[in-house]
């Protein structure tokens, strides 16, 4: 899909500028475009530094191609920018290293993160990649809360954890993918065994 044909997703309809504000355009790895306010971008240290370094003017923002974020898909990026727009202008917390971490999840964030667990892990990954401290705090807290009162089997389902057997199978598959000849040799060996041959060579 070309950039011109990509769907444009306005993250915050209510936040359409009354006064002249700069709205940056970002593009996910599945070519979805997002318009995000300058103030909202400040929640992400990575994006904030990026746009500062680019030094775009209002005309540049409209005329130049959208800034590509290669590692994050549109569904996840939409959640990230919704969060940034809602929390724009808020102070960015400083990690004081306290344990256990006391984090409260606001109502908006709780609703935003009411998603399937796979998407939640993608959201956390994106928050870490874009260095959005508070989003990372609340999403990690949400994941930690999911462990409450769970048995190992339940936790495996909740955290989408592979079992030891699945890990072993994945490891074997990865090894075979690296060396396709290994599989052929193994099959040949099995075949010869079935035929009663004692020696492979």
């Amino acid at each position: 899909m070309s950039v011109e044909n990509a769907p444009v997703v306005d993250v915050d309809e209510a936040a359409i500028p009354v006064e002249k504000k700069m709205y940056y355009r970002f593009e996910s790895n599945d070519k979805k475009e997002f318009r995000v306010s300058e103030l909202a971008i400040q929640q992400s240290e990575t994006l904030n530094r990026l746009v500062e370094a680019m030094g775009y003017t209002s005309e540049d923002v409209e005329n130049k191609p959208a800034i590509a974020i290669e590692n994050i898909d549109g569904k996840t990026l939409k959640l990230v920018f919704q969060w940034c727009e809602h929390h724009k202008g808020e102070a960015i917390p400083v990690d004081d290293g306290s344990v256990p971490k006391i984090v409260e999840i606001p109502e908006f964030d709780a609703k935003l993160m009411d998603i399937d667990n796979g998407l939640l892990f993608k959201l956390i990954w994106a928050a870490d990649y874009l260095n959005i401290v508070q989003l990372l705090n609340v999403s990690c807290k949400k994941v930690a809360n999911m462990a409450q009162g769970k048995t190992p089997a339940q936790l495996r389902r909740v955290y989408l954890l592979p079992s030891d057997e699945e890990d072993e199978a994945a490891k074997r598959a990865a090894q075979e993918a690296q060396d396709p000849r290994a599989r052929e040799v193994e099959e040949e060996f099995e075949e010869r065994k079935r035929q009663g041959g004692n020696s492979f060579f």
């Binding site: 956390i124 990954w125 870490d128 955290y159 592979p162």
Partner: peptide
């Protein structure tokens, strides 16, 4: 993505 694929700092 699952829990194990998250970065270590996370």
């Amino acid at each position: 993505k699952n829990f194990l694929t998250l970065p270590l700092l996370v």
